[in-house]
Design a protein around this nucleic acid. Structure first.
Lengths: 214, 214
DNA sequence: GACATCCAACTGGGATACAAGTAGGGTACG
DNA sequence: CGTACCCTACTTGTATCCCAGTTGGATGTC
């Protein structure tokens, strides 16, 4: 499959705008014009429009009738609600996990944790954030439930920026975070899934409020 | 606010098609044409297209390029995954509930249960199904988390038909369902939320597999 | 009859044209 | 100077047009 997947103009527009927001080029409060976007992307308004409505469904922008699309700010409430929802799915993932799913978990978590430590030693905060996000995503993967996973991804995706920002705030004591992660890993290695679930709840409760989940 | 909310043609198209699917007029496997829909709705293809893409995002149809939009069938896997996800959110709702949210719960559940029994006595199975859905939705409402609630609504909404269908299958022993619901109510009335959460888990586990959650 | 081929009638994707609504600045008037 | 008004320059919403891809039946061939 070396041939590039032919994508529609609408998909390209969606990816472009979304990436620009994630990179921080398009900041909240910025007003987007269909004409302007169409011009920079060398396409007509039609696919741009489709992309914007999709971005609205995904929570990135708000479209005001006859006025334009506004890049949305994540409110504090939204961050909190999103974190709560993600935690709910993580807990469910643990509960739904069967032996087959649990099989390779400990090894993967251990590997991820090593990388987390290396990232911190190298001062790579964004790298650490991504790894921590993957660490938690692994719990939802346990569910073997693609619907849950897609919902989770959407939430985590949308929070990417604020998670990255909160990384700075938290980096004062990242060792504490990793220590808690290591406790989870220990339970997983021993196969004590009840203790694992309990520890995850506590871990989440401790992080409750700052928006990031790790 | 007696004036009817002015809605866009795209919104009308979306509501129309979605309602037709929910009513069972448009059955899975049916191929929808933009031209045909535009004609029956007396509008151009443009708003119809917007509606169809949105319906695709919501899981109602699948759009095949240059061929048309297919009304989707709910696969068994999808029903199972959806049920698991809904249960995850219900459990989270209970856990997140504060005293303020728990306040009126018992009364509301009791009222709902009375209506459930009346519906069954009257042989109103669809009515019973709707009431049972509301019963479970109440748990998610406890979370005071609008994001969770909207995700839950979308899942429940999409499963509406299969839930209604499974109502027939289950109606053989609806008293058992109501009895379990009454146990939950009892815990809520006593304020024993730990027992409530446990009973909910068991209740869900018992229903696991038939797609409906009640 | 079986099969390859072709072609016409569809499909949706995108570009463009037009309609309708909004916001804000300039202007006339008090 | 303040205020109401209006007009212009935007915006999105919808309609229409064109294009490329798909499909399935008619047709020709063996």
């Amino acid at each position: 499959m070396s041939v590039a997947q032919k994508s529609s103009a609408a998909d390209r527009a969606h990816a472009h705008i979304r990436a620009a927001i994630m990179r921080g080029e398009l900041t909240p409060g910025r007003m987007l014009s269909e004409n302007e976007l169409a011009a920079t992307l060398s396409m007509s308004r039609t696919p741009v429009r489709a992309a914007l409505t999709r971005l609205q469904d995904e929570g990135w922008v708000t479209i005001y009738a006859q006025r334009g699309a506004l890049v949305r700010e994540l409110t504090a409430d939204e961050v909190r609600e999103s974190a709560e929802t993600r935690q709910a799915l993580e807990s469910a993932g643990i509960r739904l996990a069967g032996p087959a799913q649990r099989e390779g978990l400990a090894a993967r978590l251990a590997d991820n944790l090593d990388q987390q430590e290396q990232a911190l030693l190298g001062g790579d905060v964004p790298g650490f954030a991504v790894l921590a996000m993957r660490f938690h995503r692994a719990f939802v993967e346990l569910s073997a439930n693609s619907m849950m996973l897609s919902i989770y991804d959407r939430l985590q995706d949308r929070q990417y920026l604020s998670i990255l920002r909160s990384a700075d705030r938290i980096s004062s004591d990242p060792r504490q975070t990793i220590a808690e992660h290591r406790i989870l890993l220990g339970h997983a290695q021993r196969g004590d899934w009840t203790a694992f679930a309990t520890a995850l709840d506590e871990h989440q409760a401790r992080n409750h409020g700052h928006g990031a989940t790790w």
